[in-house]
C-alpha cells in the first residue's frame, strides 16, 4: 500500500497532466496549417514532432538522419522562421507543417503546440519528440531501424526510451568552423565530454536529473545548480493522455520517466547528439540573449550567453573524439541493456 502522501502526489500530478493537456487544447488555435499530409500516416508508423525557428542549416541533415532511422512522418511547428525553413519544410513529402507567430516561451518552449499535435496524430504511435539540433542514436542504430527498436521495447514491456543529451563541439572556437546544410555536422562537432556527468533522482516525477558535460564544465563551473539538464525521454509509445512536463526532460504520467534500472542492471538507452555548437552559435546566442525566449529564468543565463558570444574553444586535451555508438556504449554513456 502506498503512503497517503504518495497517493496525494499522484493525484496532484494527474491534475497537473490534465491541466497541461487542456492548455494544449486551448493553444491549438495558435497553429495555422501550412502543409497537412497527415492523411498519409498509417497504422504503426513512427512519427517525429519538432518545433523549429530558423533551422534551415540543420534541417537537411536532421531529416535525412531520422528518415534513415525509420521515421515515417514528421510533424513540424514553425515559429516565425525567416530563413526559408518554412518553404523548405513544406516541400518535403513526409512533412506536415504548421505555423505560429506566438511566443515560444509562453507555449512552454513549443511543448503546448506539439502536445496538441500529439493528441491529434500521435495516439497509438511511437513518437519521437526532438529539437532540430538533436540527432538520435541508439545501440545498433546503423543496422537496426527504429521499428526494430520499438518492437523490442514493446516486447520488453516498455513504453519509453531515455536518451542522454550529449553536447558535441569542435576543436577550436565554434565560430571559426564551417558547415554547409546537409553535411554531417559531426565531421566538425567531433568531440564530447565523456565522464563528467552527475546524476540525482528526482523523487517527485521519478526521473533522473542529469547535468554536466561541456556546458557545465565551461559555463557553470561556479554555479552547477544552473547547469542545463541533459536527461530526456524523446521516444514514447504515445497515448493522447500523455504530456511532456518540462521540455522532453520529464513526462506525465511519471511511470514513463522510469527509463533506468535501480537494481544494478542496465537497460537499453540512447543518446541525443546535440549540434548546438555549430558555427552559428555565436550569432544565435546574441539573438537569444535579446529575445529571452529560452530558459525559465532568462536573466540568470545572461552570463552564459555572454560567455558563448565570446566564442570560446570548448575543446580540452581530455575531450573524447566521437567514433560511433559502440564507443558511447563502452564509455557507459548509453547501454545496450539486454538487446543483443
Amino acid at each position: 500500500m502506498e503512503e497517503p502522501r504518495e497517493l496525494w502526489l499522484a493525484y496532484r500530478l494527474r491534475w497537473k497532466r490534465r491541466r497541461l493537456l487542456f492548455r494544449a487544447l486551448r493553444k491549438r488555435r495558435q497553429l495555422a496549417v501550412v502543409a497537412d499530409r497527415t492523411c498519409r500516416i498509417r497504422r504503426g508508423d513512427i512519427l517525429a514532432f519538432v518545433t523549429v525557428r530558423n533551422e534551415a542549416l540543420r534541417l537537411p541533415f536532421f531529416l535525412e538522419h531520422h528518415r534513415r532511422l525509420g521515421v515515417d512522418h514528421f510533424l513540424f511547428v514553425d515559429n516565425e522562421s525567416d530563413d526559408g525553413t518554412r518553404e523548405w519544410l513544406a516541400a518535403q513529402p513526409d512533412v506536415s507543417l504548421w505555423h505560429t507567430g506566438e511566443s515560444y516561451k509562453l507555449s512552454r518552449f513549443g511543448m503546448d503546440w506539439l502536445t496538441w499535435l500529439q493528441i491529434r496524430h500521435g495516439h497509438g504511435h511511437w513518437c519521437l519528440t526532438l529539437d532540430a539540433d538533436e540527432i538520435l542514436i541508439y545501440p545498433h542504430h546503423d543496422t537496426r531501424p527504429l521499428p526494430a527498436l520499438t518492437e523490442w521495447l514493446e516486447r520488453d514491456g516498455r513504453e519509453s526510451l531515455g536518451a542522454l543529451m550529449l553536447d558535441m563541439y569542435p576543436k577550436g572556437p565554434p565560430g571559426a568552423q564551417s558547415y554547409a546544410a546537409g553535411e554531417d555536422p559531426f565531421d566538425t562537432l567531433a568531440w564530447f565530454d565523456a565522464g563528467n556527468y552527475f546524476i540525482e533522482k528526482q523523487a517527485k516525477l521519478r526521473n533522473l536529473w542529469i547535468r554536466g558535460g561541456v556546458r557545465a564544465r565551461m559555463f557553470f563551473a561556479d554555479r552547477p545548480r544552473r547547469a542545463p539538464t541533459l536527461n530526456k525521454v524523446p521516444l514514447v509509445r504515445w497515448n493522447r493522455r500523455y504530456v511532456y512536463n518540462t521540455s522532453t526532460h520529464q513526462i506525465l504520467p511519471r511511470r514513463l520517466n522510469a527509463v533506468y534500472a535501480e537494481d544494478g542492471g542496465e537497460v537499453l538507452s540512447g543518446v541525443l547528439l546535440h549540434t548546438k555548437f555549430l558555427n552559428t552559435i555565436v550569432e544565435r546566442s546574441r539573438e537569444e540573449k535579446d529575445r529571452r525566449e529560452h530558459f525559465e529564468v532568462a536573466d540568470s543565463y545572461r552570463a552564459y550567453y555572454d560567455a558563448l558570444i565570446q566564442d570560446p574553444d570548448l575543446w580540452c586535451p581530455d575531450s573524447t573524439r566521437f567514433t560511433g555508438w559502440r564507443q558511447l556504449v563502452a564509455l557507459g554513456l548509453m547501454s545496450r541493456g539486454a538487446w543483443v
Binding site: 536518451a163 556527468y197 546524476i199 533522473l208 534500472a261 535501480e262 542496465e266 547501454s335 538487446w339
Partner: peptide, 21 residues
C-alpha cells in the same frame, strides 16, 4: 553476457539507464 549486463550491469557505472539504489 547480455543477461549479465541487463541484470548486474557494469560495476561502478552510474548513467542514464543504470542508477542503482
Amino acid at each position: 553476457k547480455a543477461v549479465e549486463r541487463r541484470t548486474r550491469g557494469r560495476p561502478g557505472l552510474y548513467m542514464q539507464s543504470r542508477f542503482p539504489r
